Measured scan of single mutants.
Amino acid sequence: PEEVRRLVEELYRKGVSPEQVKKILKKQGIDEREIEKVLRRIG
Results as ranks from 00 to 15, higher is better:
E2L: 13
L39T: 03
R40Y: 07
P18N: 08
E3A: 11
E10V: 09
I35Q: 01
G29R: 03
K26W: 06
V4A: 03
I30V: 08
E2M: 13
G15T: 02
V21T: 07
G15Q: 04
L7A: 07
D31Q: 05
L25Q: 00
E32L: 05
V4F: 06
Q20E: 10
R41S: 15
E2T: 09
Y12Q: 05
L11Y: 06
R41H: 15
K23G: 08
V16I: 11
K22S: 05
I35V: 07
S17H: 10
L11G: 00
K27L: 14
I30C: 03
R40W: 06
L11F: 05
K23E: 12
I42N: 03
K27A: 13
V38H: 07
I35N: 00
E9T: 11
R33P: 03
E34C: 06
E36C: 06
I42H: 06
K23C: 15
K23I: 14
E19R: 13
Q20I: 08
E34S: 07
K22T: 11
R41K: 13
I24Q: 06
K26N: 05
K37D: 15
E10A: 15
E9H: 11
V38N: 06
E36A: 03
R40T: 08
G43F: 08
G29D: 03
E3L: 12
E3I: 11
S17W: 05
L39G: 01
P1I: 11
Y12K: 04
S17M: 07
E32Y: 02
E19G: 10
E36Y: 03
Y12D: 02
E2F: 13
D31L: 04
V4I: 14
E2S: 11
K22L: 15
V8P: 00
I42S: 04
E19Q: 11
K26G: 10
R40N: 15
R6D: 04
Q28C: 04
G15W: 03
G29M: 04
E34P: 00
G29S: 03
V38P: 00
R13S: 09
P18V: 11
R6L: 08
E2Y: 09
I42P: 08
V21D: 00
V16P: 00
V16Q: 08
E9I: 15
K22E: 04
Y12N: 03
E10G: 06
Y12I: 13
L11E: 01
V21Y: 01
Q28A: 10
R41F: 15
E19D: 13
K23L: 14
I24V: 09
I42Q: 04
K27H: 10
